[in-house]
Nucleic acid binder design. Structure first.
Lengths: 428, 428
DNA sequence: GTGTCGGCCGTCTGCCGACAA
DNA sequence: TTGTCGGCAGACGGCCGACAC
């Protein structure tokens, strides 16, 4: 990922310029989504790509589609470029990746080389996410800001005013500006966004159940100071307020993103190309690239795709070659919750076999059949891939970053899952 | 095309049911668009399909795309199925066609067989199309209906009322109902759509410059009667009015479509699949179908595609084998006007050569280089295909359906270009 | 014949605290 | 702490003929 110093992703492609803030993109993508670093080696799975296309076009892959015997079920590639995008109409986030398959010789040698470590997910340090209520989206009123959220990510109000109020300016993924009146009023007092809010709701076509998230990308020096020193000194408070304004206005503007609820099938049948041709296209493109060792381009749609299909080589090698799994083994796996935080679900391995023995024999893609502990397991997939799960009964070959029943915040050096709650940490 | 007796196109595809009125679809598609009949033989041009994908994704075909030497520049196919669709979001019309390439032997024999005649464009007999003004789309008022249009396609008003008014119910391509108050008032008197109009404008996101069209699919017995007998008898008029209501309410409801202005690039980069993969996909799908003589599916998007790329075999054979063209020859060609009627432009053939000698040698697709008579020729393409033009200096091998300087309406048996004006008929 | 406007009324938007969950 | 409501004032939607091109 090419990131300029301001944290914006400058991309020039056929005259079209896009500035996408990486932190905002990751916040919208969710806590479990991470993109492999540019220049690293990754493994690309045509099957997973096919699943994404099937989910996007709402059509399963057809039997008419030809086999590509020359295309292996996984392709080890050099990741040449990653750019973050958002759909102009829907704000849906997606990433464009340029991949180059390694030569046959390199594909074999790669297990001997030191593998790169995947970068942890870059969840913003200072953000909040709220699912919109009926009142939030109604034309009758504004947006009710949860108190902690407002205090955490909005610039502090001047509470000597009656009522305390300010204008907030936030930028979305397309770098559009949105202005809101932020006011602290009512009985009991609460934070509200009033003027400007309804324009945003109608422009983004938000409905109750969708989520909105605010980020203050500046690591909150102000918040830390406030925590440390409190409001005991009005003299200090005023100085603090000025500093906060300064930081906010300089480079670190307030950012604003949306995450739509999983509405039942917002599909577009994409009148451009038949879904069959799309499936053939992705296979033929990968096969051609593999045959000629040339680059090809894919789109990864984190919120539409059932699973990541471009994963760091190191993750793949560890899971496939350095981990022993067997039928009956217990495991756990991370999922995103409704509130966009993270929790684990537990299950048992019930089988290990090819998902599609005809087209993709000897593929590791979703090769593990599983049963889930909780009875609401209908929502979770019956097949997973080795690198998605964390086996429990084998001795871990590398220290797990998720010790059980951790009661304190993450040490700063470890991957930060910001939305993780203490209650979600324990195994249930 | 499977058409039920009510003129609706019943399609069941994976549980999804669509009812598209054929007449409305053609009205929205424009006067020059015609779909070959089901069961007929057609010629499919991968190059033209590629052009449509390029136009839809706003990306030209890349040099990285592999050649498909086994895929000829044109594929003679059996047309197994044609279904008419409209994009749920934008109402953009498109057609889905299922094609099956003939076997190599059949491809050769086909020129010996009697070729089917293409069906003429099915422009509705009783419709009007108006480009929306600023006042039409403003929230300040309603829709001003041109007088002739209202008298032609709306049920007649009861002019004994003061003011004369009625409720109109019209159905769009998705079979949604729209209700409008139709009133005849003002000084001078005019036809207006008031209540209900603004809901329609905002729902369809219409802006000034877009067009709206109304159809009364019943061949207007009422209108004919009115023309013949006039309003001289109030007794007759009342009887006429009742009959008209009866006809309208029975089966032949008022239909309503939209045509958006050619706004500069409303592109969606289609985050599903890279444009390279899409181009590869359409080529690979066609190549695979040709190799196995199996069916494949394409989408034809009349208002996005630069040219038709599935044409009746008879049209192709006539143009390519039974018409002599040479450099310097004069020709004329039909174009759609801003007002969605038809006019000819004239030009001269300046060359005959391959559009893409490397990928598509010996292709007839856009093999004719042309110069246009009028200086605004920048809008018209510099290359056309043989079957798009009408050569002038050769003796026509079949009677032209467009005699010069025709001053009377079309004989009812001939193809009807309803919007054609007398003034447009003469060569300028 | 029809596009745009000023005038006028009615509905809905949108800001407020009350109140309860 | 925050979701929803009634109350209220002002903005905007939307129907009308006047008028001009």
């Amino acid at each position: 990922m090419r990131l300029s110093s301001s944290g914006f992703n400058q991309q020039t492609q056929e005259g079209e310029k896009k500035c996408l803030n990486s932190e905002l993109w990751h916040a919208c993508a969710g806590p479990l989504v991470s993109l492999p670093p540019v220049g690293s080696r990754v493994v690309y799975f045509p099957q997973g790509h096919s699943e994404q296309v099937a989910a996007s076009t709402n059509k399963e892959v057809d039997a008419h589609i030809p086999n590509y015997p020359s295309l292996p079920p996984q392709l080890i590639c050099q990741l040449h470029n990653v750019t973050m995008h958002a759909d102009v109409e829907t704000d849906e986030v997606y990433a464009q990746m340029t991949l180059q398959p390694l030569s046959p010789q390199e594909q074999k040698d790669v297990y001997l080389l030191p593998a790169e470590l995947g970068t942890p997910s870059k969840q913003p340090t200072n953000y909040f996410c709220k699912t919109l209520t009926a009142s939030d989206t109604s034309t009758h009123g504004g947006f009710s800001v949860p108190r902690r959220a407002a205090e955490k990510v909005f610039p502090p109000l001047d509470y000597s005013q009656t009522p305390p109020a300010q204008e907030l300016i936030a930028r979305d993924l397309h770098d559009n500006e949105w202005k809101f009146r932020h006011i602290f009023r009512g009985q009991p007092k609460r934070h509200l966004l009033t003027t400007g809010w309804s324009v945003f709701v109608s422009a983004k076509r938000l409905v109750a159940g969708d989520s909105v998230l605010f980020i203050w990308p500046c690591y909150s020096v102000c918040y830390m100071l406030k925590k440390l020193y409190g409001n005991f000194s009005s003299f200090f408070f005023l100085g603090f307020f000025n500093m906060a304004s300064l930081i906010r206005n300089e480079k670190n503007q307030l950012l604003l993103g949306i995450r739509r609820a999983n509405r039942p099938q917002t599909v577009m049948p994409s009148s451009v190309l038949s879904s069959d041709s799309m499936h053939i296209g992705l296979l033929a493109a990968a096969a051609h690239a593999a045959a000629t060792n040339s680059r090809f381009t894919i789109f990864y749609n984190p919120r539409a795709s059932p699973s990541e299909f471009v994963i760091p080589l190191a993750k793949y090698v560890k899971a496939v070659y350095h981990t022993r799994v067997s039928v009956g083994m217990r495991f756990r796996m991370l999922f995103e919750t409704e509130e966009s935080s993270v929790r684990r679900y537990m299950g048992t391995i019930t089988g290990i076999s090819d998902l599609d023995p005809v087209r993709w024999p000897n593929s590791h893609w979703r090769s593990v059949k599983v049963g889930w502990d909780e009875s609401t397991a209908g929502e979770r997939q019956p097949r997973v891939s080795l690198w998605e799960i964390e086996p429990l009964t084998t001795f871990p070959m590398y220290p797990s970053p998720f010790p059980l029943r951790l009661k304190r915040p993450w040490p700063s050096g470890l991957p930060s899952f910001h939305g993780l709650k203490d209650g979600d940490m324990s195994i249930n």
